[in-house]
């Protein structure tokens, strides 16, 4: 089921993972605990403030393009002809 990956593509993934690791090890990042009135606690600062709209978009583009997923997962399968 899992075929070996081309080296160039593996490099892309590994680069991303290293970037994430670099990010996670950077002690200069962060804001510490924030109160309920902070900017980051606003609904529009959530990573996906409108999940239902995102679900509609995913359905459209899943049906019209050869790519899907990446942002999140879940939802249901469809024939989507």
């Amino acid at each position: 089921m899992f075929r070996s990956l081309p080296f160039a593509k593996m490099k892309v993934i590994l680069s991303g993972l290293f970037a994430a690791l670099a990010l996670s090890s950077c002690s200069g990042l962060g804001a510490g605990p924030q109160g309920p009135t902070s900017i980051l606690s606003r609904p529009d600062m959530q990573m996906d403030p409108s999940p239902l709209i995102s679900a509609l978009d995913d359905h459209i583009y899943f049906s019209k393009e050869a790519s899907s997923g990446g942002r999140s997962f879940g939802g249901g399968g469809c024939g989507c002809n």
Partner: peptide, 23 residues
């Protein structure tokens, strides 16, 4: 309530929450 439910809604679809900042 809104913030907590928004977090739940986002989480239900996957990652992508800034709940690190939410109580």
């Amino acid at each position: 309530i809104i913030a907590a439910l928004a977090t739940a809604a986002v989480s239900a679809l996957g990652t992508g929450t800034s709940e690190a900042q939410l109580g």
